[in-house]
Design a protein around this nucleic acid. Structure first.
Lengths: 149, 149
DNA sequence: TGCCGTGTGGGGAAAAGTGGGGAATCTGGG
DNA sequence: CCCAGATTCCCCACTTTTCCCCACACGGCA
């Protein structure tokens, strides 16, 4: 099971390539085979799943009902943006134009490790997103960092 | 279960490395494998969890739902500060720049053992924090340690 | 006094991050 | 059918950062 974490400031070159941080790469299971699935994320960012984690996502949407209009909409949206992507020999991902455009990514990117997935953001959009949240780090930590009993 | 304690004055060298006190090291369980997770703490300090203790924190984060917007915010907020860190052969941790900056750490540091985690402070900030507490040790003890009824 | 564990500092090799050139492939138009 | 332009992919090169190892100073202890 993957457990990505951390926040990394990286750059996208003018070919749309983004390097995966070394610390993130160390958490990719060998089963992923250097293959990732990129797709549209929640909020204005991209989700990057290692192949093995993506398989779990696929499993969960297989359970959705084809006869339910909302389910159809969800599955179509998720899958139409999804793209296979392999690391090049420099451990970079080449991001398709339409995904870059969706996420509003230009030169600088923010890479977040979020447990089973990796997220790619335009730093400014991320900042705006964070500033519009009512909760703070402290209030969040209070809920989660409580020692186990 | 870990049980760190004590207060230690140490130094951070110009590479951002901080040695873990020997007495603290003796309380790290072998399961931690010399790996620690550093993250932002309450107030202006850093939390250091041995790997096995961090696993408990992560389990509680995994319980949050990726499809709930507030939960997504929680997970991002907590994980963006977290960093894996291994002891070098001199039993030191190499602290990333952004965490040093957050905690306002320069040359001198204060290391505190706090049960399941270790805390790293700028000594001056810690002093200010302690001086600004409205209550005294005694009055707080009275409230906190009251026997359950 | 010599030894060992501990805390501190620094040099050098290795890895990581970044950028660009050029061949192979695809596409549309003449 | 062929060619020009764009895109993709692979390789090479440079700079910076990280990490690994060695060295030294200090203090307790036999």
């Amino acid at each position: 099971m993957s457990s990505f974490k951390g926040r990394y400031s990286y750059s996208a070159d003018n070919k749309g390539r983004i390097a995966l941080p070394a610390k993130v790469r160390k958490n990719v299971s060998p089963g992923a085979n250097d293959t990732f699935i990129l797709t549209r994320g929640y909020e204005q960012c991209l989700f990057v799943y290692p192949q093995d984690e993506w398989a779990k996502v696929e499993d969960s949407i297989r359970g959705l009902s084809p006869s339910n209009p909302q389910h159809r909409f969800f599955v179509r949206t998720l899958l139409q943006w999804a793209v296979d992507c392999q690391l090049d020999s420099q451990a970079r991902l080449s991001i398709p134009q339409d995904l870059l455009k969706f996420a509003g990514i230009e030169n600088e990117v923010l890479i977040l490790g979020v447990l089973e997935r990796i997220e790619i953001w335009n730093p400014k959009i991320y900042e705006t997103y964070m500033n519009n949240q009512p909760a703070t780090y402290e209030t969040v930590a209070e809920v989660v960092l409580k020692p186990a009993e």
